[in-house]
Design a protein around this nucleic acid. Structure first.
Lengths: 363, 363
DNA sequence: TTGAAAGCGCTACCAA
DNA sequence: TTGGTAGCGCTTTCAA
């Protein structure tokens, strides 16, 4: 059961000494497991990683030893020897003018997607969104980097180009040459929404968008708006665009926008705004006894929340954080492999989920 | 400038070979810096860590070499040799019935506080909040653990007791024997609010609280309510308690609660609810031309947002995430030191910030 | 003030 | 199918 030979074993003695003098409970290492199982440490390593076949009986002995000693391999040692930290960094500035729940949904989705592939997420926010990015790259703390809350003109684009750590953007910056970017195809989504309404005879469509500032600081708000406007022009329909108010304290902006849109005589409403705003508008319409879709058609574009939580669930082209983040993680993983992916955009095709809130325009 | 001796240097040759055959740019190690500066690696290490004095001239030579080679020490190697990962794990389940912006504020605050002490944050959410906690403990991935979104009856309490990795709770679970917990002293805060109002003659106070579920799943909502009720009873004043509605879609619950409280004839309002809810109520009062504090007094208890973003800034006892998290990080650090702190509660005394919205009751 | 060298606890190559 | 062992790139003791 032990490898100790009949003569005095200096190594074993030293180790015993080390473990006994350590304060408190000594941490179990692969050496102890090997001794306990009567095999070499390499066999233990292979038995646990499965990278080499190990005789059934041997493996069982090792597993028993692992269980008995409650061994778990030391993360730092694995990182150093294995040249992988199994950590991805997520850089998310969390600018104060953003809608926190939406951004949080993406951060959480990266964590879930990463764990699926045995990776953990290191969170870089505030000023560390930029500083931390080069730091984790140069120290090798992270094997890859996920970039969230991408601005049209984002510092992190230049940073990403200057480091060798694989980096994937979730969102599309204006200048994305040579970068790997994952995102919903917002333009297609916006066009599809316009088309659906135009096909049904709507000629005057309200678009309730995000806050003013979102159209300067986010990469996707302007993409939805401009694609919608362009397609509307092609289809000969008119779009009335309105923004919603301040994120946390808006109590009038959204209602005011609805009033304006109704005055403008729109027969359909496209939403590209927060759950809160959509909840207010839909609730208001219900209060007004408006018949949906008879009096007005409703579509939500790129909603990243559960549409069925609205007072009335409406047609939606969902933005699924889990989907973007899962793809981003897979790209990062394959960037670490032998055949790294080509740089470029990976736009996820929109999927339309009907709820019966879109109908023909009633003259 | 080089240590290569006149005879063939096998080691140097091997290393050159390794570096040249590596795909792409080889990563600079401490060995290269040492050679470049003409010193030993231990001197480089000490020069960079400052743990041993190094002659000025030597240090400068090393710094120059570091700059020239763009060296940064490998994180994994440091972790293994230094027996510190410089990573703290944050466990935050992010239950869907919670107010995301509030919870996010705490996560961000831990990240900022940790960086101040050269630590990074590993984010454990969803099911990893529990699984990840034991994992990072047993693998030594994190040097310490911060527990967020603490439930009154939290699984992670038992977990924390079963691991040897230092753990600090931000929030107070019902059973907190032997744990290190940091939090605002919610009870004191609630009592102080009640006292201020009672002192000014108010005998009927409205308390607008969080959602129903928060009083079962959060550790602090019930603490505020029960402390307020208890003190009110002592002072002989009456508290009308109301909850607000669903977090993301509440468009009527809050208004309804306000109407009820006004009907009940309260002369003062204590808030312990979201920024959104407080924003709605304060805005509504302004619309009603209610004079504050002449007609009604307003106090916000344990608000973790910027009170000055409300339509009318009101008296507040702020809950400052940065403060709790900074203290929690410091406790974690000292848990790693030679004199670890005593377990127990660390309740932060409330501070009252007046805005002129509390006045005497007008009969 | 500095250097040599023994680890840290693994992974993975090379032999057997 | 298994074992021996050379690293991985640092930190830190022990000597000089």
């Amino acid at each position: 059961m032990t490898l100790t030979s009949s003569i005095f074993n200096v190594e074993a003695f030293r180790e015993a000494l080390r473990n006994s003098t350590t304060s408190g409970v000594s941490v179990v290492t692969i050496n102890e497991v090997a001794r306990e199982a009567g095999v070499s440490i390499s066999t233990v390593s292979y038995a646990l990683s499965g990278k080499r076949s190990v005789a059934l009986e041997t493996r069982q002995r090792i597993e028993a030893a692992v269980a008995r000693l409650e061994y778990s391999p030391n993360a730092s040692a694995r990182m150093l020897a294995g040249r992988r930290t199994n950590i991805f960094a997520v850089t998310e500035p969390m600018r104060s003018d953003t809608h926190i729940p939406t951004h949080m949904a993406f951060v959480l989705a990266t964590a879930v997607a990463a764990r699926r592939h045995d990776y953990d997420i290191l969170l870089l926010t505030e000023e560390q969104a930029r500083l931390g990015m080069s730091r984790v790259a140069s120290t090798g703390l992270a094997d890859g980097i996920l970039v969230l809350d991408v601005a049209p003109n984002d510092d992190r684009v230049a940073l990403a180009r200057s480091i060798k750590t694989p980096t994937v953007f979730i969102g599309v910056p204006d200048d994305h040459d040579g970068l790997l970017c994952v995102d919903l195809d917002f333009e297609s989504a916006a066009r599809e929404a316009v088309d659906r309404l135009a096909d049904l005879g709507h000629t005057r469509i309200g678009l309730l968008g995000m806050t003013e500032t979102a159209y300067e600081t986010s990469n996707f708000a302007p993409r939805v708006r401009s694609a919608a406007l362009a397609r509307a022009a092609e289809r000969g329909v008119q779009i009335e665009f309105r923004t919603t108010g301040h994120i946390q304290t808006d109590r009038t902006g959204t209602r005011a926008a609805l009033v304006e849109l109704q005055k403008a005589g729109v027969s359909a409403l496209m939403f590209h705004c927060t759950q809160e705003a959509q909840s207010v508008v839909v609730g208001e319409l219900l209060d007004q006894q408006v018949q949906v879709p008879y009096d007005i058609s409703l579509i939500s574009v790129a909603a990243s929340f559960d549409i069925d939580e609205l007072p009335l669930p409406i047609d939606v082209i969902p933005l699924v954080p889990a989907e973007s983040c899962e793809l981003a993680v897979e790209l990062l993983l394959s960037s670490l492999s032998d055949e790294p992916p080509e740089p470029g955009l990976r736009l996820i095709p929109p999927r339309y989920a009907p709820r019966g809130t879109v109908g023909p325009r009633i003259a």
